[in-house]
Amino acid sequence: MMSKRFIPLWITASLLLVMFLIGSLQFEGFASARVVTNLFRDNAFLLITALGMTLVIISGGIDLSVGSVIALSGVLSSVLITQYQWHPLLAFALILPLGTLFGALMGTIIHVYKLQPFIVTLAGMFLARGIATTVSEESIAIDHPFYDAIADLSIALPGHGSLDVSSLIFILFFAIIAIMMHYSRFGTNVYALGGNAQSAELMGVSIAKTTISIYALSSFLATLAGIIFTFYTFSGYALGAVGVELDAIAAVVIGGTLLTGGSGFVLGTVLGVFLMGVIQTYITFDGTLSSWWTKIVIGLLLFFFIVLQKLLNGRKASHG
């Protein structure tokens, strides 16, 4: 019998397939490599953010700061590159550790003062957005040969598809994090924290190290997503990426991760992002529907998935 853990994952995969089939039957050119690789390209920054969010939620927490961290990372990159003439790689080498530190700080506060992650990362959200806006309220365009080179670089696939640098970076990090979650001690500790933190501590798991690492990693990935967002928009904007944290949380839940922690897969989250992306693509192809329909469908999907989680867990409890 299929393990109950995989049921939400299969449902998400099936829904994704069904949506894709509907689109393919209705519109010419929907079922193409280009549409698929565009899903990667358009959602790379959200995918990377959502990887981190999955870890956080599996551990029983939440990270509301990621959208603001993306904006801050983008603004700092564009300011350093455009106004201070830094080489982009040098700018990234400064910004990525800074972003990681920001997350580690939030993790430390959550652990040391036993605070709700919700409220600590909410503070982080305001703080990062505030700093970004103070640095520059205007959108700053990036014009640098490195960015042109990045934009031109891609692996061509048959059927007019191509994987760009952002997609490749996402695939790399997806592989790293999937392996980490399932084959490393840290990954086991993340699941243990979400399952029963008190027991895990009594069994010798370092709650401090794990908590701080989780939030540091989430902020690192959000910072990276912010850099990738500049590849996509060729600019940094302090008021951009508003609500991305909510999209990421939605993708994690649609991907079958329990909001109470302890259960879920990064693969599910990726499928969740793609499902949201396919709905968006469908609406674009249709051309007559308002793009807000995406939100309506995501809302309905979320309702469906949280009720599904409740039912699956209810069943588990009655058997236990």
């Binding site: 001690r185 500790n189 699941y191 399952g195 029963n196 027991s199 895990a200 009594l202 069994m203 010798g204």
Partner: peptide
């Protein structure tokens, strides 16, 4: 401890070895 202090969502083997899992090439 008195109450079963294990982590319910991990596997039996993970619960037995949590914190000192056998490793190979740095992975479990």
């Amino acid at each position: 401890y008195q109450e079963v202090n294990l982590v319910p969502n991990l596997t039996v083997a993970q619960n037995l070895f949590l914190g000192h899992e056998p490793k190979r090439f740095g992975l479990i």
